[in-house]
Design a binder for these strands. Sequence first.
DNA 1: TTGAAAGCGCTAACAA
DNA 2: TTGTTAGCGCTTTCAA
Lengths: 339, 339
Amino acid sequence: MVRIVDIAKRVNRSITTVSRALNGYEDVSPETRQLIIDTAEEMGYTPNSIAQLLQRKQTMTIGLVLPTFSPRFSDPYFSELLAGIGNKAAELGYDLLVSTRPPGEEEMDYYKKLSAGGRVDGFIVIRTRTNDARIRLLVDRKFPFVAFGRSAYDPESSFVDEDGHLGMQLIAEHLSSLGHKRIACITSNRDFTFTHHRLNGLLDGLAKAGLEIEPGSILEGDLTQKSGYELGSELLERKQRPTAIAAFNDLMAFGVMSAAQERGLSVGKDISVTGFDGIPMGEYSHPPLTTVSQPIYKIGAMTCEMLVKALQSDSPAKEHILLQPSLIVRQSTGAASPG
Amino acid sequence: MVRIVDIAKRVNRSITTVSRALNGYEDVSPETRQLIIDTAEEMGYTPNSIAQLLQRKQTMTIGLVLPTFSPRFSDPYFSELLAGIGNKAAELGYDLLVSTRPPGEEEMDYYKKLSAGGRVDGFIVIRTRTNDARIRLLVDRKFPFVAFGRSAYDPESSFVDEDGHLGMQLIAEHLSSLGHKRIACITSNRDFTFTHHRLNGLLDGLAKAGLEIEPGSILEGDLTQKSGYELGSELLERKQRPTAIAAFNDLMAFGVMSAAQERGLSVGKDISVTGFDGIPMGEYSHPPLTTVSQPIYKIGAMTCEMLVKALQSDSPAKEHILLQPSLIVRQSTGAASPG
DNA sequence: TTGAAAGCGCTAACAA
DNA sequence: TTGTTAGCGCTTTCAA
């Protein structure tokens, strides 16, 4: 391992000069600079990041703790979000410290350790919860972070979020315009703030058309295809079958479609199914899925960019960005079948 | 920010004693130890990780660079792999430094920076390539890593891989036993080593049954649902339509199914489709997908565990683990339709 | 234009 | 059982 002193010895200069030459300071003579750079190159020098970090009191690292509700999670949504965050971070010269923790005490301890330990400069907090202990901790400690999703602490923090209320309202309008009256929905966990926005959007949108969902037709899923399949099956077995089912994410919508097709129903004709997220798979499912497109990749990139901006400013303002999602009508929805 | 000297001053001891008490050394009197621990707790002390790392010359961090062939990637496979790696790393007390880089020079520079800069203790290298510059670099530098996938440098390195040859052979046997003769396949990029294992497995398996695939029916996809859809469409438009299409991953198989269904074909009857990976979605697709189950989550966990073991041993042996995949027959395959 | 020296926060060899 | 001291590899202030 080549250190700065090794170079210094070789070129007969002090380590100070070497450091300055390598860091592009102006007060080094051109010849010395060139000599040092060449020698460093020749010796295969790479700065020791840890030592640099200790000195600079900056880690150039962003923390991202994935909440693992079940140990395994298999959701294209996450890889897309991660790509958005990761690519932007790379572009801005930041690294990403990623870990997985089940929500709860372990998770909190890890946040404490990383924030207090100077291991990361800031966090990206995803899947915000109604009363989010992670956010409270970070707000209390005045530790920089940007959330993907809203929370109870919005005035004191920055977030990027999609307008789930609007998104589901678009779904409601779409379904009601197709003549659907018996509509069911499969929500996500109530702990997530986005669940409330989406549910309210759906109910508000339907109310505008003079429609409502009976409480028994609001089922809570867990965002997996499996739960969409199971809850979809349950809804489809009812004597009074809904003519449309609005799932709160695409994965659950796929599950609902399978459940319907298994019963010989033609999705888009006998029953309408909608999703939320707009993952690429929805374009090539059978039938292609009517959904609300949420630019996940972009959200990841924006969240990361917002955080880095805050880290590099000395008096960061709280920023709140609400992205407008758009309705994508494909073939999984159609006119309500009479009856 | 509370430092060790702050505690030392408060309890009137030297920083050494504080450090030792906090790190559980035996040579501290019980009273002193308790006093120190209590004071640390009270003052809200958390060790500065960076300083610890600099001193210990160990980062307790594993590097994982996701190769982003396209900036966005939306694949449940990755989130599952990441969960496996991440959970195991957390369990073993390691952090994960994740970044995304398009394959090529940037990627190599990043590997160089992280390895030489003492930023990570080792790497997990995924999606191994036929002539893998990343692996060559790490082998040359004698930097610890474990690969998920085989490479040209296997004797000098450790890997975990699935037996793709066996997996596709099982598919071949399954299809031939169903009477399929006109079989096509959609492969992945030839740069990946697993592509060759899978392709050879398929061809060998078919050869055993006296079958072969004509070169024109071996198309190369890019592992996305979109490419499965497009190449599937192409195959299905041929006058001599294949009766079975074997895709090299589940996502492409879903695309093929859509293409078939769009043409009014019943998947599992008019045409058989198979995948590879065994992502959870395949269980709830319509029809459920016949595929080869590769325990991705477990592979992630094993890879991580193997790396940590190597990091903690002073004379790590090269380990090679080849996992046996298993065939999962669902409804996307059926007897070859005559004609 | 250069170098000496202090110090980032911590650990550990050594001495007392 | 405790403290002194010397680093880990680097950046940066200050003086020359």
